[in-house]
Structure formats: C-alpha cells, structure tokens
Design a protein around this nucleic acid. Structure first.
Length: 424
RNA sequence: CGGGGAUUAGCGCAGUUGGCUAGCGCGCAUCGUUCGGGACGAUGAGGUCGGCGGUUCAAAUCCGCCAUCCCCGACCA
C-alpha cells in the first residue's frame, strides 16, 4: 500500500476531550473515527488490526472444534420472552418498533437466537458435543460509554456457545476454552489474568474473566503474585495486602484492569425454558448442558493500545500490526530503489506458493513530505518494523523495530530474510 | 440517572462590561525553495459561532429550554 493512497490522516493534535490513551492514539493515528459516544468506524489501518485480531480468534476457536456461523442482530421480542429476558434486559437492549409495530430489539447477546436454531437440528446425544461461534457487532445501550474502544454501545464480540450431554463434558471443554483464550490474548500481545468472578444470574459457580492490567481499566481485581490466583474485587473476601487464600505464601495486590473476555457455565438455564433437549443413549430425553464464552476483539484492540504505546505513538505486537513493515523513503534520489524493493516485497505469485512470491504487507511512505513528518507518522502509526531508505542508510536499508528492541542495517537483498526471521 | 466541564472552519483554540466585514495555529489548494525527527516564504479557499426561543437599535457575547461530547459516580448478561 502506497501511503499517498491510504485513506485516513494522522492528526498532530489529540481530539478534544479524549483522555484515554487508546482513544487519543487510535484517533490521531487515523485508525478509528468516532460517530457518537461509544460508536466507532474503523478506517483502513484500524480495520486491518481488528481483522487480524478476529482471525487469531477464529484460528483458536476453530482449533477448539468451533464452527463459525453468523446470526442476525435484529431480533423479535417473542424470542426473548421465552426466557423472560425481554424485560430483564430492557435497560441494556435497544428495543423499538419494527414494521407494523412488531416489537424488535438489537441483540445484546445471542443465547436465545442460537438455542432457537440448535433446537431445530439437535435431537440425539450423537449430535453432541457441539461448539458454535460467531464474530459480530453487539449492541448494548450502556448508560455511559467511555474510554474509546473500551466501553462502547456497538462493539465487536466473538461469542462461542458449547452444548454438552453432561456436566463433566462441559467442565472438560471449559478448561480447554480457558487455554484457547489465553492463547488468543498472548498472540495479541496481552498478558491476561484468569480471574474468578461472579457467575451472575447464570450459575452459583464462579465465571472466569480474562483481565488485562491497565490503569484505564474499569475493573479492580485482587491478584496473587505467587500462585496466579486472582479474583474480581466484587467477590473477593480479602483486602489489598492480605495473604493469598490459595497458596498462603504471597500477598494479594489490588490492580486496575480491563475485562477482555468472560466465560460462563450456563448449565440448563437456557435449554430448560427453551426446551433444548436431546435423546440420550439410554433413550431418555434430557436437557442440554451449555456454556458460553465471550471475547471482544474491539476491546482487545483498545487494550493493546492502552498497554503498548510510548510518548511517540502506538507499538503494535507483530501478530496484529496493520502492516508487516513501514517502508520510509527519506531521500528522493533513491526513489527508484525504494520502489523496486516495495514491489519485490509485496509481490505475491499469481500461482501462490512460488518461491518468488513474497506477499509481505508493506506500507510504503512515498509521500511528498519532509523526512521529519514521515518519521513522526511512522512512530505514531506504530507498525512493528520500520524500513528506512535515506541518505544516511547509504545504499542499504536501515531497520528499526518499533518497540526499540533492535535496529541496524541490511542490504536491499537481505530485507526479505529480515522479515522472514521476524514473522515466520 | 446524579455531579462537574465543554460546544466558534476538517482538527486544536482565541474572541463576552453586547457594537463596523468573527480571528489564530494545524490541515487543505497553487507556486517556489527545502528534505534523517512534525521545514520556510508567498497567495488562496473554507464559518447558518451546537439548535430553538427570548431581551435589545444591535447577540458568538445576556437570559431560558433542548441536544451532543468528555470526566467522576451509579450501572455493567
């Protein structure tokens, strides 16, 4: 991608009123655009990052055995009445009149919609277990949207639902899901803390939240530095500095954090009222045991921006960087060489898999701008690797990792190797 | 929903004891000189001053209502 053609511009100044790092930096760098409180558009750079996060989620959900589907956001009142949630969720759900005054609502979650589908197809224990998920925008009429992407009224969510014939099978899958979630967050460059939290109305057991420590988080958790025990402060019976109830060695420390995922054992809370049953091997009809597993890609993106930045701008972890490299042309005398390198790196063989095909995602800054402006923009945008062609690089290519871990020079012919070493 | 702050050009802001044609910086356009940490000069385009109503000879400026955004709190399957 040539940067002169890239839609979206960096802003020298932070948007008025924004305070959170993710809102300021993602806006300034041209990743997102706010339409109204808690509702954002994703511009080309932001869309690339969000898409990469979603694809990581897809890979890990598929590895769990999940099958991706897509459900509607627009839903009828009658469906929600089966579980009593039309009333229960009326504060948080956008509910309004559709055609002919039919009452409809934008789904804030999808248990009812999915159970309605599954009960149509599921009849035998042979159909279980079953894991279905979607990545879709959720709508929640939050009383107060805040902190950029961290709390929105429309936001991206991956929701996985599992269906089992018994509790033991759910328990087993639930543990696998915890592992998959940790893998997703790790790949996105986040350290997630598996935190026990209230099961809410779903279960007397704890649910588990995946929390990322950051001062801009709205949750508070108690974490043991020794054994990894963590509880949401809402349910924790111990105070900051108390001895860990789990390992009895280290102390608990209170930390602000942002919840990027939350998983629940639902049991039969939905299958019972909606009559989702199956016939067991013994010929008896039983209620399906369910679990649900939420993860917010847009909130992950905001959290990464909160955690990975410095005074100059964003610092994307390599798996979700909008481009593999930011190629900066700082010396017009070398425009030809830079353009040649850009074409070589981005060239993807038509046949696919050919040795000559590189297929790297490169943002090539060939704009008519001062060198200073290009360097500033590159740091603000935060692509993991910067490749600089300028008077100082003297016939070679200077490279810098945005996290400042490494820099140096390589020959033009060695850039592909450098990329391979870092990304593959 | 309670409390606080804000709303003037695409973005960030100045301008109120009410007064002539509403300014500045960034960005944008044209030309020239620049080019390794947001270059410089010249010229130019761009505004129902958030909305509605009121006071007045006269309102960005005073008064009332409303809307929106941000922060703190409440809330957060």
């Amino acid at each position: 991608m040539k940067q002169s053609k890239l839609f979206g511009k960096t802003l020298r100044e932070a948007p008025k009123d924004e305070v959170s790092a993710n809102a300021i930096l993602l806006s300034r760098a041209g990743f997102i655009h706010k339409l109204m409180a808690g509702v954002y558009s994703y511009l080309p750079l932001g869309f690339r990052v969000l898409d990469k996060i979603k694809n990581i989620v897809r890979e890990e959900m598929n590895a769990l055995g999940g099958q991706e589907i897509l459900m509607p956001a627009l839903t009828p009142k009658e469906l929600w009445q089966e579980t009593g949630r039309w009333e229960k969720l009326k504060e948080i759900m956008f509910q309004f009149a559709g055609a002919g005054d039919q009452a409809v609502g934008l789904a804030a979650t999808h248990e009812e919609v999915l159970v309605n589908i599954v009960r149509r197809y599921l009849s035998s224990y042979r159909d279980l277990p079953l894991y279905l998920y979607q990545i879709q925008d959720k709508f929640r009429n939050e009383p107060r949207a805040k902190s950029g992407l961290l709390r929105g009224r429309e936001f991206s969510m991956k929701d996985l639902y599992s269906f089992h014939e018994n509790q033991a099978d759910l328990d087993n899958f639930y543990q696998q899901a915890i592992g998959a979630y940790q893998k997703v967050f790790e790949r996105c460059g986040l350290i997630s803390i598996v935190t026990e939290a209230s099961g809410g109305a779903f279960t007397t057991e704890y649910s588990h939240e995946f929390q990322v420590a950051t001062p801009y988080g709205e949750d508070e958790i108690m974490v043991c530095s020794g054994c990894g025990f963590a509880q949401n402060r809402e349910i924790c019976a111990f105070n900051d500095g108390a001895k860990c109830p789990s390992c009895a060695k280290a102390k608990l420390a209170q930390t602000k954090s942002i919840e990027v995922g939350n998983i629940f054992k639902l049991g039969t809370i939905y299958s019972k009222p909606m009559q989702l049953t199956f016939t067991g091997a013994d010929g008896k009809e039983k209620e399906v045991i369910m679990g649900c597993y939420g993860l917010g890609p847009s909130r992950v993106m905001g959290s990464v921006a909160e955690v990975h930045h410095d005074k100059d701008g964003l610092i994307w972890p390599k798996e979700i960087t909008p481009f593999h490299a930011h190629l900066l042309l700082l010396d017009n005398k070398q425009a030809g060489a830079a353009d040649k390198l850009y074409r070589e790196l981005t060239f993807a063989s038509a046949k696919g898999g050919s040795a000559s095909g590189r297929g790297w995602e490169i943002l090539f800054d060939e704009r008519v701008e001062s060198s200073g402006a290009k360097l500033k923009d590159a740091d603000l945008i935060g692509i993991s690797l910067q490749l600089i062609i300028g008077a100082k690089s003297a016939g070679a290519v200077e490279y810098r990792f945005r996290d400042k871990s490494e820099n140096g020079k390589v020959n033009f012919s060695e850039v592909d190797q450098l990329l391979k070493k870092f990304y593959r």
